[in-house]
Design a protein around this nucleic acid. Structure first.
Lengths: 228, 228
DNA sequence: GGCACCAGAATATGATCAAATTCTCAGGTG
DNA sequence: CACCTGAGAATTTGATCATATTCTGGTGCC
């Protein structure tokens, strides 16, 4: 009667298998990355308990993790909110992204297979489609997917982890800017990156990545400057 | 009669002011950084509940934070342990430390005051003393203090945060190596760093930092290679 | 050697206590 | 007379704990 270890359960979706705090973490993380939460917005434990229909302890743990990630901010009193970035923060993020993500691009270049490159190209096509149709949410998801998928081939878990955290920091601001300025205006150097991957040229990949990061972040800087 | 905002309360020891989960986090963090926990060692919630005399919820939250920091490792099943690093991990850490901490050194150089430089020099003196007397724990504490104090003057909270996390990752391994090889053998480029600070030469500071980081980490690599 | 059982640890809930913010209303002032 | 100010109550939210439930890993029996 114990079909606990039955095979079909492991096929794909195994919702009961992951603990509640993990599910809450993933959901909240997605909300932050893809912009359902606005910078400056207050995040309450009890609010999430109702919204996500989870218990208090899992929500609490998820929030602690996200604070540690830099995705949420502990406001000294007991309040938690989505951080809103200043120009200095963005400047630091630009430096960190450039060094870390360029290195990841280099490492991925010399390890990735041809098949995996085509998977990246497919993601980039979906990205282009999102840009063309002005689908902001799709743009954010596909853009993140492209970078994450690339880094997964760098065989560098620690650096990938750092990069992932950086994305959590500027995710909400990215959403604000692209919601305001539209998707068209964003630069996209992914074609250059794909070229570099196909040529197996690490330095070219790093250079293309640097331009993608710099132009994207500079765009956020401009967008937030308008907003003040 | 309301002395809620009275000065004496803020004088110094305000043990009731910080929440329990914060205290647990700090204690556990220190144990990891300064080596009371060995790489590979299992960490149990109930064990910490007894050891640290805290409730279950605060311990739980502290552990989640430290997992997110990379200081602890979630082993897939419900076990948590102190990670033990492989050669690839150290290689990544070397790259990350070099880029991040050198930049922090650069930024600190152009902002730090003469008085603060002397405070750093005082820490370095305490470090020398610990090395001379073979005080491993003191060495670890003072070495960490030196770097942290330096970075606090870089006016770069995000980069400092990243650097801090990196220290949590290799802290346990550093302890193992220095316990085995003694404190004498460790290189110390702090004098060069202090020189660069006094001359206000950012590139010289970055270079000295790079050597300090590289030699220190290389030493860990060698030490762990012996241990296998 | 494999399978069932058992002990122990982790997960998750809800209740309770404490703190902080907000709201309200009274008093005073321009 | 209207508006600003501030003390205090009320409500909202966070922190902590005790407890029930579920799961993992080991042990012993067949």
């Amino acid at each position: 009667m114990t079909e606990t270890t039955s095979l079909p359960a492991a096929v794909h979706g195994n919702p009961a298998k992951l603990p509640a705090h993990e599910i809450v973490y993933q959901k909240l993380r997605a909300q932050i990355l893809f912009g359902e939460l606005v910078p400056g917005q207050a995040v309450t434990i009890q609010g999430l308990v109702e919204t996500l229909e989870a218990g208090m302890t899992p929500v609490r743990e998820a929030i602690r993790r996200l604070i540690s990630d830099g995705a949420l901010m502990f406001q000294g009193n007991r309040r938690v909110s989505v951080p809103l970035l200043g120009a200095e923060d963005l400047e630091e993020l630009i430096f960190a992204r450039k060094t870390i993500e360029c290195e990841l691009a280099r490492r991925a270049t010399i390890q990735i297979s041809a098949a995996d490159i085509e998977e990246l190209a497919a993601i980039d096509n979906a990205l282009d489609k999102a840009i063309a149709t002005g689908d902001v949410a799709g743009y954010l998801v596909q853009n993140y997917s492209f970078h994450t998928a690339l880094y997964s081939h760098a065989n560098a878990p620690i650096l990938s982890d750092i990069a992932d955290r950086l994305w959590l920091r500027f995710g909400p601001s990215l959403r604000v800017v692209s919601g305001r300025l539209g998707t068209q205006s964003f630069p996209d150097r992914h074609k250059d990156i794909l070229d570099a991957l196909r040529r197996q040229d690490p330095e070219m990949a790093a250079l293309a990545m640097e331009r993608d990061v710099f132009e994207g972040m500079e765009h956020v800087v401009q967008g937030l400057r308008v907003a003040n």
